[in-house]
Design a protein around this nucleic acid. Structure first.
Lengths: 344, 344
DNA sequence: TTGAAAGCGTTACCAA
DNA sequence: TTGGTAACGCTTTCAA
């Protein structure tokens, strides 16, 4: 029973030295027992591990970090948890990292506030690697500062100056697939709705899409910058397009925009896909809900995560290595928002 | 220019000792300069900090952890990122922690796999506190193991044996508010759809709801355990209830279930709220979308986060303190899923 | 294979 | 207020 209100002393965990003394071996031996591949007799290791188990000894990771100057921690920098794509990505990422013995230190940065202050812990904590999944906010300069002298990977955006490793869905491929699909399904007057127009992600999708439209001889009926990747931004953009008229298909820069677009159009009395076909990008889980049935380009999240993890493990994203961009192929997912409910 | 493929040595960061030598002061002085409230002459501190800035010296947090045996890291244990409520909570939580100088180490646990292994880093890394926001998965035993000898807070669930600190929305209050609201709006044959029926969260909502129905003399037309807190589970439950008939209102244990319910009912031709009123719990952002207009009980997420942070800061969740349950009041949000689009 | 001992970069205590 | 020095708990030489 806890002593009423009294601060009970936190029992200090056992150290390797204490354990060693108990068993009658050197402290080095204990360290080796816990170091895979260390040169130690199998039975000695066995014995030490058994004892450790009994007395509930666990090596202190902090002390280990200090002497190895390796933390087994990767910093994950994120800014946009509103878009469901990111929580889903973070979830897979952190799981995959855990599987290879890495922990995720979360940096949820806030627009406007002092970024270097928010990210200073990234350097002080000596994380082994930084994974940046924030498509927005971070300027090239901050990016360089945050990743200086440290393994770093950008996910879902590319660095302006190609000085950093990037793992990214092939946005151009996706945009072209959407354009082709619109073309095949007989759409001719097509609009594009950007999220944040200046982001690399948006530019890649937008440029490839517009180029492909031209190649097909289709008309870009409108080009809207919705200002943010949000449901409501999608609604507004769609309503604007509906009012203006002359559009029979809309490609939204991502799914959450498209979801807003679909809802707004239907509420306004337009039929999707009969009057206007809608496509998105990402394939968040909501896109597959019967209510939306959103045709979209599925980001290869699993592969992206795998590639990133591999780069961390094999050191190819370490500082000093020449950085590169890895573009991963995605997949067009056709659903009822473009082809109607009776499609294959 | 990076040397082609060569591993460039990672420039080792400067240490306090080196900086001290440069300036001609003791290493202790450097440490004090960076320690708020340490006894050091203001101008000496000034001088040291200025020098540090110039040569880009930053105290090594790892070393500091080792000697202070304080990490400024809190472990956040989560398992259910599918339900949008949790990413939103995590986001606010991590931001609030950052504001008080704490970093979040993420533990994304997977059902079934060895939990102690997944959580072992929680102990090895000596996190200052553990915040558990996983409503499911963790058994009482694992819970105790993970939080042993360590500051810990459960968010959104209560510990079976009240041995842990809990910060939780007043589920009973919310459930009663929903029941009252159904009553006021003339509903009489009401169903309850559980997520995971055995979770404390569900039990609190379910029991309070059913009790209140009885007090109002209303009929519990059905009690369904949907098996998981998911959109599709909500759909199935709703369709089942529709087919069975005899229900004019449904209280879903959370919003994501309710969203599935609304979509499924409408697709099946039922009118919401005219034929069946729908209410949820949480008030995730989607609930406010015009398409759903979901009446729900808003969890006081900001307050929950604030209370949790305060408990960590003032040490009231430290081991040895007598733990307690903090229930925070929420707010009923009336929307069109119960009162129609023309409500106030 | 084993043990002793020197770091790793701080903080904290003790004199000065 | 300052500087010297012993922890903090591990990893990693270097000898044995």
């Amino acid at each position: 029973m806890a002593k009423n209100g009294t601060i009970v002393e936190k029992r200090k965990p056992m150290t390797a030295r204490e354990l060693a003394r108990m068993i009658g071996v050197s402290q080095s031996a204990v360290s080796r027992a816990f170091t895979p591949g260390a040169s130690i007799a199998p039975d000695l290791r066995e014995k030490i591990l058994r004892f450790a188990e009994d007395v509930d000894y666990h090596p202190n990771a902090i002390a280990s970090m200090l002497s190895k100057s390796r933390t087994n921690i990767v910093g994950i920098v994120i800014s946009d948890m509103q878009n469901p794509f990111y929580p889903a990505l973070i979830e897979k990422l952190s799981r995959a990292l855990q599987r290879v013995g890495l922990q995720s230190l979360l940096f949820n940065i806030t627009r406007g506030a002092n970024l270097e202050e928010q990210l200073s812990a990234l350097r002080r904590y000596n994380v082994d690697a930084v994974i940046i999944v924030s498509a927005t906010i971070l300027s090239g300069q901050t990016l360089r500062w945050a990743t200086e002298d440290r393994a770093a990977i950008l996910i879902n955006r590319v660095a302006e100056d190609a000085e950093l490793n990037c793992v990214i869905c092939d946005n151009a491929e996706g945009a072209r697939a959407i354009a082709d699909h619109f073309h095949e399904t007989g759409r001719r007057r097509v609009a594009y709705v950007a999220g944040l127009s200046h982001t690399t992600t948006n530019r890649e999708r937008q440029n490839a899409f517009i180029t492909r439209l031209a190649e097909h001889g289709m008309t870009l009926s409108a080009l809207i910058d919705s200002g943010e990747y949000s449901y409501y931004a999608g609604r507004n953009a769609a309503l604007g397009l509906l009012e203006r008229g002359g559009t029979d298909a809309i490609f939204f820069a991502n799914d959450i925009l498209a979801a807003g677009g679909i809802d707004a159009l239907r509420e306004a009395g337009a039929r999707v896909p009969e009057d206007i076909a809608i496509a998105g990008f990402d394939d968040i889980s909501m896109a597959g809900w019967p209510h939306y049935g959103l045709t979209t380009f599925r980001q290869p999240v699993d592969t992206i995560v795998d590639v990133a993890i591999t780069m961390i493990e094999d050191g190819s994203c370490a500082p000093g290595q020449t950085p590169g961009i890895r573009r991963i192929s995605g997949e067009l997912i056709k659903r009822s928002s473009t082809v109607g409910p009776d499609a294959t």
